[in-house]
């Protein structure tokens, strides 16, 4: 059991104008070992918020702190490996599934810190109900659900501290979805880890044996 829960990620008055005069201005906290779930209607800026937190989009104003340190004190490459964004539509590259899982470990920043662990990859694949034979399969032949799970396994292998997940179960059937959420729960049990997730399915998240905090973006949405 963890002792005192620390604030892993905190964003204050984070604002950005996006499509057609809409803007968001949100504040929130991600506590160590918990999930911060973001909900809101389509176009309320859920994905935009995740991309801002991944430093793929620049906010108009506001600040973000990671374990008390301002996010701008981290080099962008280091930030994105600590606070890792997984897009709703899985992005897989040419080559086999194994090639895709290894790809991040060929990058300079990652090479300096860790190397690809095939045993861990196998464990994760089994946990999300994917057969190990999938490793040799060309990534472009995977179904949407398979690709989404491979994409998540690849993210976990990078050992981030915060996962930014944009509807990770959107392409999954009920069993795969449960298996994936189960893996995420176990992953969260390690120290200094948290998940910010965009979800349309509150029941799925509420059923998890974890503390889930909600952030409703609809109420934070402004129209100009």
């Amino acid at each position: 059991m963890r002792g005192l829960r620390t604030i892993l990620l905190e964003f204050q008055q984070l604002s950005r104008q996006f499509e057609q005069g809409k803007s968001i201005c949100v504040s929130g906290q991600l506590i160590d070992g918990t999930i911060l779930a973001i909900r809101g209607v389509s176009g309320s800026g859920k994905s935009t918020l995740l991309k801002i937190l991944a430093r793929l989009l620049r906010p108009d104003s506001g600040e973000v702190f990671f374990m008390g340190k301002n996010w701008l004190t981290f080099p962008p490459q280091e930030w994105r490996t600590r606070v890792h964004y997984v897009a709703q539509k899985p992005v897989l590259f040419e080559g086999s599934v194994a090639d895709n899982l290894c790809l991040p470990f060929s990058l300079k920043t990652i090479q300096q810190e860790r190397s690809f662990n095939i045993e861990e990859a196998n464990q994760f694949l089994e946990r999300v109900l994917l057969p190990l034979s999938i490793l040799s399969q060309p990534a472009q032949t995977l179904s949407g659900g398979e690709a989404a799970r491979v994409s998540l396994v690849r993210a976990l292998l990078l050992e981030p501290q915060v996962l930014l997940l944009d509807e990770p179960t959107a392409y999954l059937d009920s069993d795969s979805s449960k298996a994936l959420m189960g893996l995420l729960c176990d992953w969260l049990r390690e120290d200094s880890r948290g998940i910010i997730i965009v979800s349309h399915d509150p029941d799925d998240l509420e059923a998890l044996p974890l503390q889930v905090h909600w952030l409703d973006l609809e109420s934070e949405l402004r129209h100009s």
Partner: peptide
Amino acid sequence: VDEVEQLLCFGASPWE
């Protein structure tokens, strides 16, 4: 764009 951003999320430098 999606592939480039995915690589950036892995910790890639702009050149990578």
